[in-house]
Design a protein around this nucleic acid. Structure first.
Length: 351
DNA sequence: AAGTCGTGGAA
DNA sequence: TTTCCAAGACT
């Protein structure tokens, strides 16, 4: 079994020399740490930083965030992805205010009861803000520990998650839990990277099992990769004077709560002729199909969206769905939209 | 427990 | 071009 004290000593010495100065590291305010952790879930520091700064400026305290409108939160989150994080963020802020008098709970269990706060985020807040000896396990930690200890158990298996969590807890320096946790992650993000790790400058190289056996490139092991499915989105650009039709996405599908153009989804790509047939059938005949304005291939985690934007004109007596709303140009820019729509608006100088 | 949820950058 | 995957959580 690796020596925990050696691991932590080397790690913390390295961290004090090499860590990047980031705004959420200069505070122990649980609100700001929580906000940064949620923003950084599955998100690189370079991508999340600007969003963090905007959120802190717009809502400096958890009480102010709790009083915010959900759509305003989604709008500020626009472009960051995984939009359930934004909705859960607001829910959790209201939990803190209503159930805890505006103060974040100071235990792992209390934190994990907040919406959108799982084991990782609860451990991060508990260790960083309250000095509790909770070990974090994120993608960086999986990689660093798999290599350091030479563990080939798939990190996306139940056994693997259990094993790595236990090892992380063993190696944790309980007296410096917050810094220790951040140090492992920082090492994984900057030195022990997925590709081309910089082992020569790694503080753990002397006792790294993978380096010793030449297996750095083979660790960590992942079991399964989920397949991606293709979807065909035919977006309808319909205007009425100065206004354009938009709709809000609901249900359990992607981009919940965000706005988009009226959408006709099809099992495969549509020709101009088949689009007209589909529209005539669905909303009454007489549709006029204009230009195909834009085509985008948009890649998500488990889906590839083939988006085509058509300029179309409904027949005068068409029965358009009530959820299609006419929005003026002025208001359009205020709507939270997925990147596909944002790109289309940029192209046509809408919004 | 396996699937699902965005987006962008790097190799 | 394709593939990987990033300070994960929820269902």
């Amino acid at each position: 079994m690796p020596s925990a004290s050696w691991f932590s000593r080397r790690l913390l010495a390295w961290y004090r020399e090499h860590h990047r100065p980031l705004p959420w590291r200069e505070t122990r305010d649980p609100y700001r740490v929580w906000l940064s952790e949620v923003i950084l879930q599955q998100t690189r520091v370079e991508q999340g930083l600007a969003y963090y700064l905007r959120f802190v400026e717009r809502w400096p305290t958890v009480q102010q965030l709790a009083a915010a409108d959900e759509h305003d939160v989604l709008k500020l989150w626009q472009g960051l992805g995984y939009y359930s994080r934004a909705r859960n963020l607001l829910t959790a802020a209201r939990q803190v205010v209503q159930e805890h008098g505006g103060r974040f709970p100071e235990s792992h269990a209390g934190l994990a009861a907040l919406k959108g706060v799982g084991d990782y985020t609860a451990s991060a807040i508990a260790s960083i803000c309250f000095g509790l000896p909770e070990a974090v396990v994120d993608g960086n930690v999986y990689r660093v520990l798999a290599r350091f200890a030479g563990i080939g158990t798939p990190i996306d298996s139940t056994a693997g998650r259990r094993q790595f969590k236990a090892l992380a807890a063993e190696l944790l320096d309980p007296a410096h839990a917050g810094d220790h946790n951040q140090a492992v992650m920082e090492l994984g993000a900057t030195v022990c990277t997925p590709k081309n790790p910089d082992c020569r400058h790694c503080p753990l190289q002397a006792r790294c099992a993978a380096l010793a056996t030449g297996t750095v490139g083979q660790l960590p092991v992942k079991a399964g990769k989920a397949k991606s499915r293709g979807r065909y989105f035919n977006y309808l650009h319909i205007t009425d004077g100065n206004r354009i039709y938009m709709r809000q996405r609901t249900g359990k599908d992607i981009w919940q709560g965000l706005y988009e153009l009226p959408l006709l989804e099809s099992p495969g790509p549509l020709t101009r002729r088949s689009l007209k047939a589909a529209l005539d059938h669905a909303f009454g005949s007489g549709w006029n199909i204009g230009d195909e304005e834009m085509e985008q291939r948009h890649v998500l985690s488990h889906q590839v969206i083939h988006a085509v934007f058509w300029q179309v004109e409904p027949p005068p007596q068409a029965a358009l769905p009530v959820e299609w709303k006419r929005v003026g140009r002025r208001k359009l820019g205020q709507l939270a939209v997925p990147r596909v729509i944002e790109r289309w608006m940029e192209e046509g100088r809408w919004g």
